[in-house]
Amino acid sequence: MLIVDDHPVVRDGLRGVLERDPDFTVTGEAGDGAEAVELYERQPADVVLMDLRMPRMGGVEAIKRLLRGDPEARILVLTTYDTDSDVMGALAAGATGYLLKDTPREELTRAVRSASSGQSVLSPAVTGRVLGQVRKPTQGPLSDRELQVLRLIADGATNRQAAAALFISQATVKTHLLHVYEKLGVKDRAAAVSEAHKRHLFE
């Protein structure tokens, strides 16, 4: 096993926890992603325990480089950071799992064992974030036509009036509105208009 963390005290603690289990052997330690890549190339490990935010090279870039050299590498992220960008960035890069540093000792050893057999491992908090991202409405800028429809609605136009003003059918107006709701993450006309004002879309 290769432990990658820029704090020596953390590395020492992890080594102590993991080597209490006779099945685990820590074969190396790295203080940043670049050093981890160099060590792994010289001596591949069954599991790489990877921190995310480190000097020289962070965890996400290190994950990409490790997998580029060895597509079968099993990399388990262990970090204090659980923002959407950190979680999704690491998983998109190819991490086998994602744990937080407050994970109990028993769960950590169980996760390492699972990762070594190729199973994905996520802490409960991270699972919630991943599901939240999957369920999040499609984001993106409104098209010119969607903005025209929304502006008319904001001015008090009905679907029929908006359709007449834009020379399109009422069904098309409804379709545009559904896309607007999805992109803005709202459920009705009033909320869409309110959100558009918050985002200064009419300016």
Rank of each mutant, 00 (worst) to 15 (best):
I3Y: 08
D5R: 14
D5K: 14
V10F: 00
L14Y: 05
L18I: 13
L18R: 13
D21A: 13
T25R: 15
D32H: 15
E35Y: 06
L39T: 05
L39K: 13
A45H: 10
A45R: 12
A45V: 11
V48W: 03
V48G: 10
V48D: 02
V48N: 06
M50G: 09
D51R: 12
R56P: 01
K64E: 13
L66D: 05
L67V: 00
E72F: 04
R74F: 00
I75W: 04
L76V: 11
L78D: 06
L78A: 06
T83M: 07
D84H: 11
D84Y: 12
D86W: 08
L91A: 08
A92Y: 03
Y98H: 01
P104R: 14
R105M: 06
E106V: 14
L108N: 07
T109L: 15
R110K: 15
V112L: 06
R113G: 09
S114N: 07
L122M: 07
S123F: 05
G128D: 01
R129P: 02
V130A: 04
L131A: 04
Q133A: 05
T138I: 12
T138Q: 12
G140H: 05
P141T: 09
R145I: 12
Q148T: 07
V149R: 00
I153A: 13
A154D: 11
A157F: 10
R160Q: 08
Q161I: 03
A165G: 12
I168M: 14
Q170F: 00
V173M: 06
V173T: 07
K174W: 04
H176C: 05
H176E: 08
L177Y: 02
H179N: 14
E182W: 07
K183G: 03
G185H: 04
R189L: 10
S194L: 12
E195K: 15
